[in-house]
Amino acid sequence: MVTRDIRSTPAAPPRPTGSSSRGAVDSRRLPLYAPGEIDVPFVVMGSAEVIPRDTFWEEHSHPTHELLWNRRGASSATVGRRVWTITPTLGLWIPAGTRHSGWTPAGTWHRAAQFGVHAVPQLSDGPVAMEVTPLLRLLLDRLDTEELAPEARSRTEAMVLDLLAPARNELILQIPESPLLAPVVAAVRENPADTTTLAVWAARLGVSTRTITRAFRAETGLGFSRWLATARVQHAITMLARGEEIDDVALRVGYHSASAFGAAFRRITGLSPGRFRSL
């Protein structure tokens, strides 16, 4: 590995709905590196870990580009005010030197691949969701688990680089920064089943519904309803990835029926909840 792994007392990060344990949260502190600060000898190097307890990864950065995905379960990574959901089919490409933190629920089979900046072109200026296809997973597994001759390894690495492609749908939530929206954001992230309407929020905050809507659009690019649906789907994905029943998940993220939940889930992800859980 190119980074150190130091466990420390957790800084009480927010725990998403559906978190599997009421016990302590592991907190991992990693270094901050500039791009290429460490001259690594590899093109691609992978790692895998089944996460034993809910784990918060404090803000850090790598000297290498990083691809995150999961063999099992769903997790999240935060860059600035943006939160990406990571699944077995939807990974996240993080350019070298990009500061990010993460949340990985207990039981997640966490995968990561580091890419040397000397050998890999910059795929994007910032983080981008990536398609993790069955073929890409097989090739990355081959690099991690097989003793390959130099020529075979080079061919496999070249195929990996050729398969890296942005995802058609990305599960990203922009967190507003304005003090006006802070109570709304806190309530929804703590309890996605919160049923407070836009009109009620406006009355509580002493502003018009139009003011709240404008603020959400200015800071997130989404209206309140779409932002709320995205936040709920992010919570739901973690629960679905653990195998929880769709009807139960629907209720726990604020939908009165599985059909209403399914429609919202498809609008955000392009998949039905059942199809997502079968991937």
Rank of each mutant, 00 (worst) to 15 (best):
V2K: 00
V2A: 10
S8T: 15
S21Y: 04
S21T: 14
D26I: 15
S27T: 14
G36E: 04
E37W: 07
D39S: 13
D39M: 08
V40N: 00
V43D: 12
S47K: 04
V50T: 15
V50L: 12
D54F: 06
E58M: 15
H60C: 06
P63H: 11
H65C: 07
W69E: 01
S75R: 02
G80E: 03
W84Y: 14
W84G: 01
L90H: 11
I94A: 08
P95A: 03
G102W: 11
T108F: 05
R111E: 13
R111T: 07
F115T: 03
H118Q: 15
S124R: 09
M130T: 10
V132E: 02
L138T: 09
L140P: 01
R142P: 00
L143D: 05
E146D: 13
A149F: 07
A158Q: 13
L163I: 01
L164W: 00
Q174N: 10
P176D: 06
P176R: 01
A182M: 04
V185D: 00
A186V: 00
R189S: 02
T196Y: 00
A199G: 14
A202G: 03
A203L: 09
R204G: 00
G206P: 10
T209N: 10
R210T: 14
G221K: 01
G223F: 04
S225A: 15
S225R: 13
H235E: 07
A236T: 08
I237K: 05
T238K: 15
A241T: 05
G243E: 12
E244N: 12
D248K: 09
D248L: 10
G254M: 04
S257P: 01
A260F: 05
R267W: 06
F276W: 09
